[in-house]
C-alpha cells in the first residue's frame, strides 16, 4: 500500500557523499564540491551530510578532518590496503554493506572515470536507481525526492530524472559544476570520524600492473581557461597562435577530434564525447564547427567565446559570445591586446 511504501522510504535519511581519493590518497576536488551541494540539500531536508572515505592503510591521515571542514557532519572512514588499488568491486561491496545497515536517503558520487564504474555496481547490488552525470540537483523538502538533471543525446537534450519508489537515490555528478565550500573549522570540531571495517569477504580481483600517469601538463579537465582549436585553425603551424593565447591567459590548449586524428595534437587534448569533458570558467573556441560529439564535452563551461567565419556555425548555439571572423586573426589580435 502507499502508506507502507511511505513508511519504508521514511526509514532512509541523510545525504552521503563518496569522497574519491587519488593515487596519493588525497580527496579529489569533486568530493569537496559535492559536500558543498550536499550541505545545501541537507539544510533543506533537515538531515545530516556523511562522507565516505576509503583509503589504503598508509594514505595521508588528514583527509577526514578536511572533509569535516568542508561540510560533512560525519566521516565513515575505512583505512585498509584492499581499498588502495581502487578496485570498484571492493568499494561497491563496502558501500553496500554500510548502506544496508545505515540506510542513507541519497548517495552522490563524482562523475569521474572511477565514480562512473563504482556507482552502477552499488546501484545494481542495492537494486536502486542511478542517474548519470548530473549537472543540476534539487530536492523536494517534504518528500526528499531528488530532482536530478542531466544532459543526454550528446548534450542536445536535458532530462530531469526522479527515483520515486527506491532508496537510496543515487547520482553521479559532473566535476566542476558546484563550488567547493569555504573551510569551516567550527563545523569540523562538531563533526565526527567513525572507523568502519571492510568485511573479510571482499578482496580485489583486478591486478594493477602499471599506471601511466598523465603529467600535470597533460590534463585539461581542471583548467580554468581553455582555448580549443578546431579544423578552422587551418594548419599545424597556426596552433602556435592558439597556444600563445592560452599562455597569456594562463590556460591550456584543447582541440577537436580531427586535429588528434591528423596527428597535430595528442589525444589528451581532445574535448568531447570520445575525449574529455571540461568545465573551465572561460572557453575560447577557434574554428570549431560545434558537432554534438564535441559540445557534449563542453557543457560545464561557464563562459564560451566562439570564433568562426561561418555566421551559421552550430557552435554559436552553445556559445555565450559569438564572434564571426577569421579565428587566427582574432586570436593574434586578442593575444596582442592581452599582453599590452
Amino acid at each position: 500500500t502507499p502508506q507502507q511504501r511511505a513508511s519504508r522510504l521514511a526509514a532512509y535519511k541523510d545525504v552521503w557523499v563518496f569522497a574519491q581519493v587519488d593515487q596519493t590518497g588525497r580527496a579529489l576536488p569533486v568530493a569537496f564540491e559535492l559536500l558543498g551541494r550536499a550541505r545545501e540539500l541537507a539544510a533543506i531536508r533537515g538531515c545530516r551530510v556523511v562522507a565516505l572515505l576509503g583509503q589504503g592503510a598508509t594514505a595521508p591521515q588528514d583527509q577526514a578532518p578536511a572533509l569535516l571542514a568542508a561540510g560533512a557532519d560525519e566521516v565513515l572512514l575505512c583505512r585498509d590496503d584492499r581499498l588502495a588499488t581502487l578496485d570498484a568491486r571492493v568499494y561497491a561491496h563496502w558501500i553496500c554493506d554500510m548502506a544496508g545497515e545505515r540506510k542513507p536517503e541519497i548517495i552522490l558520487y563524482g562523475a569521474t572515470a572511477f565514480g562512473r564504474e563504482l556507482a552502477p555496481g552499488v546501484a545494481v547490488r542495492l537494486q536502486t536507481g542511478l542517474t548519470a552525470d548530473c549537472t543540476v540537483l534539487d530536492i523536494d523538502p517534504a518528500t526528499g525526492l531528488l530532482q536530478q538533471t542531466r544532459p543526454a543525446f550528446g548534450g542536445n537534450l536535458m532530462a530531469t530524472i526522479e527515483c520515486p519508489r527506491h532508496r537510496p537515490q543515487m547520482a553521479t555528478v559532473r566535476p566542476g559544476i558546484f563550488a567547493a565550500p569555504q573551510v569551516d573549522a567550527l563545523h569540523a570540531e562538531r563533526g565526527r570520524i567513525t572507523q568502519v571495517a571492510l568485511a573479510d569477504a571482499w578482496r580485489p580481483s583486478v591486478r594493477v600492473d602499471a599506471i601511466e600517469h598523465a603529467g600535470a601538463t597533460d590534463i585539461i579537465t581542471d583548467a580554468d581557461v581553455l582555448v580549443v582549436a578546431g579544423r578552422g585553425i587551418g594548419s599545424k603551424k597556426n596552433l602556435a597562435v592558439a597556444q600563445r593565447l592560452a599562455d597569456v591567459l594562463g590556460g591550456k590548449l584543447g582541440c577537436t577530434r580531427p586535429l588528434v586524428e591528423s596527428g597535430w595534437l595528442e589525444y589528451w587534448h581532445q574535448v568531447g564525447q570520445t575525449g574529455v569533458s571540461v568545465s573551465p570558467k572561460l572557453l575560447i573556441s577557434l574554428g570549431v564547427s560545434g558537432a554534438i560529439q564535441h559540445v557534449a564535452g563542453t557543457g560545464g563551461a561557464r563562459t564560451v567565446i566562439a570564433v568562426n567565419e561561418d555566421p551559421n556555425a552550430p557552435i554559436f548555439g552553445s556559445a555565450t559570445y559569438r564572434v564571426v571572423g577569421d579565428c587566427v586573426e582574432v586570436a593574434r589580435e586578442l593575444t596582442a591586446r592581452l599582453q599590452a
Binding site: 536502486t128 536507481g129 543526454a152 536535458m158 530531469t160 526522479e162 527515483c163 520515486p164 556559445a319
Partner: peptide, 14 residues
C-alpha cells in the same frame, strides 16, 4: 526505479 519526469533543450542555445 528511475523515471524521466521532464526533458528540455538547454536554454543556452541561440
Amino acid at each position: 526505479p528511475t523515471q524521466v519526469v521532464r526533458s528540455f533543450v538547454p536554454d543556452r542555445a541561440d
